Computed example of a mutant assay.
Amino acid sequence: MGLQAVLHAVYPPQCLGCGELVTSDFGLCGKCWRDTPFISGLVCDCCGQPLMGEDDGSVAQCDDCMALARPWTQGRAALLYKDNARKMVLQLKHGDRQDLARPAGAWMYRAAKPILRPDMLLAPIPLHWFRLLRRRYNQSALLSASVAKLAGLDYCPDLLQRRRSTPSQGGRDRSARFENMEHAITPHPRRKAQMQGRHVLLVDDVLTSGATLAVAADACLAAGASDVSVLVLARVAKDA
């Protein structure tokens, strides 16, 4: 027996969601797969919001992205932030389930394929140093590293820095979210040269209003990035 077969015999693969036995590593059982709202079909080219209609290859945008001036060009999301997806995001973010970053990165890579460019530089949304110290890891950094490896693209984990510790965005309306994030994220002074003339792909775990990603995108553009796109594991849909 090969090493992998021996390991599977001793430690059989378990579902990422419920722990039931599955046939492959980092997989979901049938029930958890059905309860995980993967995004497919026609989506907003700017934020990944699922849209009504058929995907005929043309560019479409949701009402929000037509009304708001997003500082980024394109965006995608792998999941809707509800049901089993919400559970896994919270486990990754607060439950020390760092093992979820590998399969989640694969889902994000699949969702991001239409917007990936050969010259892209991937970077995560940063955590404030105090929050990073308490959590011990940045979930967005784990996700962006996984996507960068699969895509074969450059990755800079500290391209940006969070200069002040912002209160949680939970429970805030759109305007309050933007106000809360104002001037919170800046380019790392020793990494500015890396984004000069580059297309930056910002990676985060969840997109709600887009306030955090907007501040980060503005910081990249001000530092000399030629363009910015965004990629998230999950996004809050209007009907979620």
Rank of each mutant, 00 (worst) to 15 (best):
K149F: 04
L150R: 06
A151N: 01
A151S: 13
A151T: 05
G152C: 14
G152W: 15
G152F: 15
L153P: 07
L153S: 13
L153A: 09
D154W: 10
Y155K: 09
Y155I: 11
C156D: 06
C156F: 06
L159T: 02
L159D: 08
L159R: 10
L160A: 00
Q161K: 14
Q161G: 07
R162T: 07
R162P: 05
R162E: 01
R163F: 03
R163M: 12
R163E: 12
R164K: 14
S165C: 14
T166K: 07
T166Q: 04
T166H: 11
T166C: 13
S168Y: 05
S168C: 10
S168Q: 07
S168M: 08
S168A: 13
Q169A: 09
Q169I: 11
G170D: 01
G170T: 11
R172P: 02
R172K: 15
D173R: 10
R174D: 12
R174F: 11
S175W: 15
S175T: 15
S175H: 15
S175G: 05
S175D: 15
A176T: 14
A176H: 15
A176S: 15
A176D: 15
R177P: 08
R177E: 10
R177A: 10
R177W: 13
F178H: 13
F178K: 03
E179S: 14
E179Q: 14
M181F: 10
E182G: 04
E182R: 15
E182N: 12
E182K: 15
H183A: 14
H183W: 08
I185M: 08
I185E: 08
I185V: 13
T186H: 12
T186P: 02
T186I: 15
H188L: 02
P189W: 04
P189K: 10
R191D: 02
R191W: 05
K192E: 12
K192G: 09
K192F: 00
K192I: 11
A193I: 13
Q194N: 00
Q194C: 00
M195K: 07
M195G: 04
Q196E: 12
Q196V: 09
Q196M: 10
Q196N: 10
R198M: 07
R198A: 04
H199D: 07
H199A: 12
L201S: 00
L201V: 02
L202R: 01
L202M: 12
V203P: 07
D204L: 00
D204M: 01
D205G: 06
D205A: 00
D205E: 11
V206M: 05
V206Y: 04
L207N: 01
L207V: 11
T208W: 06
T208Q: 07
T208A: 06
S209A: 13
G210W: 03
G210R: 05
G210L: 08
A211Q: 01
A211K: 02
L213D: 05
A214C: 06
A214W: 07
A214V: 02
V215Q: 14
V215C: 04
A216N: 05
A217C: 09
A217H: 00
A219T: 10
C220Y: 00
C220G: 08
L221N: 07
L221M: 14
A223C: 11
A223T: 13
A223Y: 04
G224D: 04
A225Q: 05
A225Y: 04
A225E: 08
S226D: 03
S226P: 08
D227R: 04
D227Q: 11
D227H: 06
V228Y: 03
V230E: 09
L231H: 00
V232S: 03
V232C: 06
L233V: 09
L233H: 03
A234L: 12
R235N: 12
